[in-house]
Design a protein around this nucleic acid. Structure first.
Lengths: 178, 178
DNA sequence: CGGTCATGTCAACGGTTGTTGACAACATTC
DNA sequence: GAATGTTGTCAACAACCGTTGACATGACCG
């Protein structure tokens, strides 16, 4: 790996961590560069602009392992929203997804990444965009209520329990979706 | 109403509109003042700081009409998340709620307002924090999936349909919540 | 060794931010 | 009408922002 690639990866890693957890406009390029231990100007060199860096951050963010079973895919989605993908202080996919709420440009990129990386596969495997959307809504609701809103009535669930409940909820949602 | 109260209310109104829809750090005090047609310095006079203005914005944001029936309260919550409270370009409560995701200080204020204004009443009327949290998760999931993530599989539902589905979902959620 | 390209450093640019204090215009009360 | 307190205006502050270009340093190849 060339020298430039390692610093590029370092920038990408810390950009993901900081931007996803604290939001696009709450983190400056100087903070990211400082966390990565490199100069600010290198961001412009490697990613062009702040938006370019953020969009590079979206690469493969919603990718799922290549499973073919319906329940396996569902479990993968639940797992992706339940656990931090890499490490303890790592940002969650949920926080990335919620970045779309208040910024039209950032939101468009996030929605596009989610659709091509995750939702389209759900559509295909669950057979119906409506079923997939309702399942996504169930996962989102649980995640937002627990992780973002921190409702005392929910969690901390262990992953198994959580997935089981969501699968149950999925069954209910799909039953009235027909 | 004194002169100062009207300009205070104008500031509050436009602050709500702009801050809730575009996020805390995406809107400057100068934009808010310009929208309200007053000088920037008046914000400091009436609200002390940007945070003070935002927190004044939270006043009564999650308040619900004083109903006592369980289903009536549930309908009120659904209605609050489904419709814009005042006018077409008005910001939604959902956007306010999602502001808690990426800013710890702002998020704390939002969560507190939501808890005292809405969740505590749900806890009381539904009898169980767990039931209330699961209901909230269902409403949140539907709202985020439709309004924020804009999943093509969901909506646009007319309000009646939407509420009916959520009430059905509530039944399912509550059934496996015991 | 000398030349060439990749990589990193530094300083600065114009613009915007939240906040402050001095001052003018106005209304109210004596 | 004069004095007083309220309400609004203006200019400025220091700090930070994303972005740019010039320059130093390193690696690599002929």
């Amino acid at each position: 790996m060339s020298r430039s690639e390692t610093t590029r990866d370092r920038l990408l890693h810390h950009a993901r961590t900081l931007l996803w957890t604290h939001g696009y406009s709450n983190v400056s390029l100087r903070q990211i560069a400082a966390a990565a231990g490199v100069d600010v100007a290198l961001i412009a060199r490697y990613f062009g602009s702040k938006r370019g860096l953020f969009e590079a951050t979206l690469d493969g963010a919603f990718d799922l392992p290549p499973v073919t079973s319906e329940t396996a895919l569902v479990d993968m989605v639940v797992a992706l929203f339940t656990t931090s993908p890499c490490g303890e202080t790592a940002p969650t996919v949920l926080q990335l997804l919620l970045m779309n709420a208040h910024d039209e440009q950032v939101g468009g990129a996030v929605r596009a990444a989610h659709h091509t990386g995750m939702q389209s596969r759900l559509d295909r495997l669950l057979g119906d965009p409506r079923r997939a959307a309702l399942f996504m809504a169930a996962v989102l609701g649980m995640s937002v209520a627990e992780k973002s809103l921190r409702l005392p009535g929910i969690g901390p669930h262990d992953t198994h329990d959580y997935a089981a409940q969501l699968r149950h909820m999925l069954g209910a949602a799909l039953s009235f979706a027909r």
